[in-house]
């Protein structure tokens, strides 16, 4: 029983981890008044860039005798590449929306269409494969002494994970700081809430909106690198709708960083619980249907939440809309 709880706790964290930075980045763009739907694309771009760098560096690493320090350097480079790839895609969306007057929603959808196509094209041109891109260097080892993960209940969740998960947690903390404690975050909020006044105060709202897109893209790119590190490879379709789930978390969280984080954890728990309930049963048994549970439960939570908000405010719940 205790083992089972430990497994679900660990699974919840590793399922929630890639959602968290992406969703907080999404929240930043929501505050800027330019909510991005390109998180899915940035995640996929990040996963591909991380795997591409790790894959390209692998022969050099092997030649150098695969020193541990070399492996860490490659992983660091892969993470930087992932953040940059996410940012490039986000820059396309942000610049189109803010400088060329494109609809941010349509531009975001275009980015989500572009990312898999471009990844496949680059993969074909540089690596000669449009399928799986192996990246062993991304396999993140655990960093704590082995005994820590044996601690009952939460040991495995807190100490049994690869180091990229802790990096994502750190990135999430930085994002919360940007959102709620920094001048930059305040200006982004001003750009979103009242562009006229922020312009009068000498702040060009467009610049801050684009900056919000860039931060969101970098965060989603890191999330994507984590996904690639989990399987030590890039696989087409690896983001599998997680960018959209991060977007749902932005809405569910009611514009608050804490709420968004809680939504991500809730979704992570649903994924872990549905995996645990399926146990080792085969894919064709009824238990496989439980994979749909996180989506249905999230939809129900959203509907109930909106209904409750409408009851509390009398009106159509517009207060909660982003």
């Amino acid at each position: 029983m205790i083992d089972r709880i430990a497994a679900i706790a660990a699974g919840s964290l590793s399922a929630a981890a890639p959602l968290l930075p992406a969703a907080l980045g999404g929240l930043l763009t929501a505050r800027a008044g330019s909510l991005t739907v390109a998180l899915e694309g940035s995640m996929l771009a990040g996963a591909f860039a991380a795997a591409a760098v790790a894959n390209a560096a692998a022969p050099a690493l092997a030649a150098a005798g695969a020193a541990a320090a070399g492996g860490a350097a490659v992983a660091a480079m892969a993470l930087v590449a992932a953040a940059l790839a996410g940012m490039i895609l986000a820059l396309l969306v942000g610049a189109c929306a803010e400088l060329l007057g494109a609809d941010v929603f349509v531009a975001g959808l275009a980015a989500n269409l572009l990312a898999p196509g471009a990844a496949s094209m680059i993969s074909q041109a540089l690596y000669g494969t449009k399928g799986v891109l192996v990246a062993e260097a991304l396999r993140a080892p655990a960093i704590w002494p082995a005994g820590f993960a044996e601690i009952p209940l939460l040991g495995r969740a807190l100490f049994g994970q690869g180091w990229i998960l802790y990096l994502l947690a750190f990135a999430a903390m930085i994002l919360v700081f940007i959102l709620d404690k920094s001048v930059f975050g305040l200006r982004i909020k001003a750009a979103g809430e009242d562009p006229e006044i922020s312009r009068a105060a000498g702040i060009d709202p467009r610049i801050y909106r684009i900056a919000a897109h860039l931060v969101a893209g970098a965060a989603a790119g890191l999330s994507g690198a984590f996904l690639a590190s989990q399987v030590a490879a890039f696989v087409p379709g690896i983001s599998a709708g997680r960018g959209w789930i991060a977007l749902v978390a932005v809405y569910l969280g009611g514009r608050k960083a804490g709420g968004v984080a809680l939504s991500c954890l809730g979704f992570g728990f649903l994924i872990a619980a549905s995996n645990a309930l399926q146990g080792g049963s085969s894919a064709s048994s009824g238990a496989a249907l439980l994979s749909a549970l996180p989506y249905v439960a999230t939809a129900i939570a959203l509907i109930a939440w909106r209904r409750a908000a409408r009851g509390a405010h009398g009106a159509r719940g517009d207060r909660w809309r982003i």
Binding site: C96, A107, A110, A111, G117, A118, M121, K130
Partner: peptide, 16 residues
């Protein structure tokens, strides 16, 4: 998959 990228670019250009 180059088709997907071209569709995306057309969409970007059109919305802009």
């Amino acid at each position: 998959d180059s088709a997907a990228a071209i569709k995306a670019i057309a969409l970007f250009l059109i919305t802009a």
